[in-house]
Design a protein around this nucleic acid. Structure first.
Lengths: 193, 193, 193, 193
DNA sequence: TGCTAATCGAGACGGTACGTCGTGTCTTTTT
DNA sequence: AAAAAGACACGACGTACCGTCTCGATTAGCA
């Protein structure tokens, strides 16, 4: 927690500590109680904040969840092992491990996007980021001649991401990341290597 | 509606008419009022059923929504145009058109699955069905030598489904089905054809 | 239980065993679960009877409760110790002890009487019986010159019963029966004795 | 109604207007629809209050009914005619007249008290209040030497109340209040007056 | 002996109420 | 002016109970 005992007004301007405390509280609740515990009341209480403050920072629950997810996911740097299939496998492994804990949150955002256009737009943008993150890695693989000729790198990137999300949604985060990587990347790899 | 005026017990066993009437009512409400009108109270009232009956058939609202979705989507017979890429494109076209109206319902089910294990299981089973639906089509394509040697048909089937869901979630149902099909299937197709 | 394993039709006429079993079951449930467990569903299940049978014997829940109470209360013979105040005290003691277990049932009947005229009538008749039961005892006390001159025996009888019911309703069954008897009877007793 | 159009939060503390509005609504419903119309949903709707608010003020329906009864019965000031028997008679007359309309409500509370400890406690307290109300009146009668020597005033007060409740329960509100008063008070009165 | 009539257990059904929960808005009091 | 506090309206959810109904099996009495 960024502030322990109490947090008061800091005068006639918003107090960023409040927003932090709210996100911290939400994260803690998610860890301890799961999705069902992630209510606006509980978050505010946990943060020793008021719902007024919560709604001053985010227009609705979905926006808060998204902010929470973005803050928690951290950077999406992909490794460079020299082998695309290994890069993908390691990413799947890392992402699945993360999602074991908070994949629910991501699913919930998907749901929230149905009622809230703001969340929906943010989700669309988020997808694009994830896909774009892959492009440099894929270009290097292409330079190493790992890929079939004329491979559509964006399509491949999207496929990688789509499969990750698909496995999250269908609750198969326990799958072997290496096998999944092979299945997804396989057809894009040059045969005679 | 399967029965108009009244519907009574048919003895010491569930009356399928009741379940039908409830699904009919839910479908009608979805059409007329949208997702927000799909409350258990409203559905029961519309069906002239009691909530007891509704909850006898489905353990919670999510399960009912899934049943509704499954029933509405109809059979998933894939066409056989003699060209896999066209088969996939046509399916995407059909599915996206359906989802334009009730994709929300499906997204909602995904969300509901996060805090309801029953719905989650049903969703997992649903995925398997969708994937299995594709296998015969893919086998025929293989016999026609459309696919690269040693193609993992199940992986391909899963990829087809994963992309569809991914596009739904990221709100890109307006995308060109043919282009998407080409991107998904492309790398699995034999080159020298 | 009057019948152990199963109880079938005995032809084209009601089977009294069924009614017995239902009352037995109700009594057992009341003992074990209290008033809240005394639902028509639970009684039927406990009796291995069907609700159809239950409602064949009694038109509604109130009637069943009343039958149960009447059967359980047994005879209301009052003792004759030679002292009215002792007679009353012993009766209060016995009745309060009984009500410790099933006074709730009696209160429930009072409630049921509000919606059901049949139960109401039965309750009125029941009061009259209780009052009349006291008259012989009071007459003997009068002959022993225990009472003030010109005592209205019916009024006294009613007062005795009214106080018992009042203590039941206001949950004071733990009161000392002798003290209560003295308070109720006191003013009716001749002083110089 | 204490507030007509809208009623909002008045800060971080309960708004008594809400409770008032709820009781008003309940009273109105009782008048118009009778006991069966007195559902928590209907009361909340009529009061333009939320069920949350209703249950914030009273733990359950029974408690609300009791509050309603207490408020409606008004003050229990007993008249002082200079004659105890007349005071009692007039009170019986007034109470019986009131109960003609809402005795059901009181009976229902008695019933509710059987499976709700909160209501039970309230009912017990209510009895004590009613009994205590009588004590000043009885003391004045004693000072006027109306009562026999050494009369237990509390016992007498309780007897007065017990008989009233008894007559309510056994549906004899049509009885002559003067006769009843004479029967109840008679033995407590000094003879040679 | 085969037929008829009514009961029985079983449990689903319509209807209706209850009490809980979650969201987003509001107002007061304190800083 | 912003913060904590928490009450508020709205409205959904899932549970419980009552009294009615239909089924298939059962049994006694009549033909």
């Amino acid at each position: 927690m960024s502030s322990e005992v109490s947090r008061r007004s800091i005068g006639a301007r918003p107090n960023p500590d409040a927003a932090d405390a709210i996100l911290d509280a939400a994260a803690s609740l998610l860890q301890r109680k799961g999705l069902r515990g992630l209510t606006t009341d509980a978050i505010a209480r946990e943060a020793r904040a008021s719902k007024t403050t919560l709604y001053r920072w985010w227009p609705n629950r979905g926006a808060l969840l998204l902010a929470l997810y973005v803050r928690r996911k951290g950077s999406s740097v992909h490794e460079d092992t020299g082998s695309l299939i290994q890069d993908v496998a390691r990413t799947y492994e890392r992402v699945f491990r993360t999602w074991q804990n908070e994949g629910q949150l991501f699913s919930l955002i998907i749901a929230e996007a149905q009622h809230d256009d703001g969340v929906a737009e943010a989700l669309v943008a988020f997808r694009k980021e994830r896909v774009d993150d892959w492009l440099p890695v894929l270009r290097r693989a292409e330079e190493r001649s790992e890929l079939v000729d004329g491979a559509d790198l964006e399509a491949l990137a999207e496929s990688i991401v789509a499969h990750a999300w698909f496995y999250l949604i269908t609750r198969r985060l326990g799958s072997d990341p290496a096998i999944l990587a092979a299945r997804v990347i396989g057809p894009w790899l040059r045969k005679n290597r």
